[in-house]
Amino acid sequence: MSTIVRPYGDTTGDGMVQLSFTLPVPADKRAEGAALQLAGKMGLDPAMVVHSRAMGDGYTFFVVYGRVQHLVDLGKVHVVERDFPLLGAREINTLVKRRLRRKLVVVGACIGTDAHTVGIDAILNVKGIAGEKGLEYYRELRVVNLGAQVSVPDLVERARAEKADAVLVSQVVTQRDAHLHNTREMSAAFREALPAARRPLLVVGGPRFDERDAAGLGVDRIFGRGTTPREVASYLVHAVLPARAVAA
């Protein structure tokens, strides 16, 4: 099978895409021409402005359909594939009980100015998300959810006091790359406070992270949009328990 694909409109290989954008120009003939010029530079040929609409005096919104010239080589796509088995709640509890012989301790928080706990709560609260219960539901996990706007020193202190196996940090709302700065600050603080052997697993999550950037941010794992509690729990079991095959 070919590893080269094009976007699909209604026929294989037609290359059709749709996009929308705003230009800071008044809505008139020239504006449509400007939109076509942009579409052309983006590789759409031919391009059609199917909708344009004035927004206030100086802005125009466009919807453009067109054919792109670009090819996608699936052989050159790099993503972080899940490199651990996805387990059920029962398996996870059994593994922790048998291997760790104590509860696996997870400390979670939103750090920095981010007050939005939706992410951390979706993963930790019993309620969970998308029909999956959160980590509090797992009998063999002990979850400490510190909530929002936790300072990095407090997080480190609490993780140490609770003897955390893993620290989960969520960053939802961010501006000017605050999520990246906060994460670097957090990972540096843990490196400074604890020797490598006693350092908990550092996991961050949020819609704006790039999952490939874990090393750059000094953390063990990044989870992006759409992550479920079960994936996180499976990863924790995989990463925290002694290395002998999880599939035992």
Binding site: T113, D114, A115, H116, Q149, V173, T174, Q175, R176, A178
Partner: peptide, 21 residues
């Protein structure tokens, strides 16, 4: 408001040009 403000124990002064969300 800027996300951090609810936990500030003072009200900032003057016009401001930097906030988070």
């Amino acid at each position: 408001r800027s996300t951090g403000q609810s936990l500030l124990d003072y009200v900032p002064e003057g016009p401001t040009r930097e906030g988070f969300a």
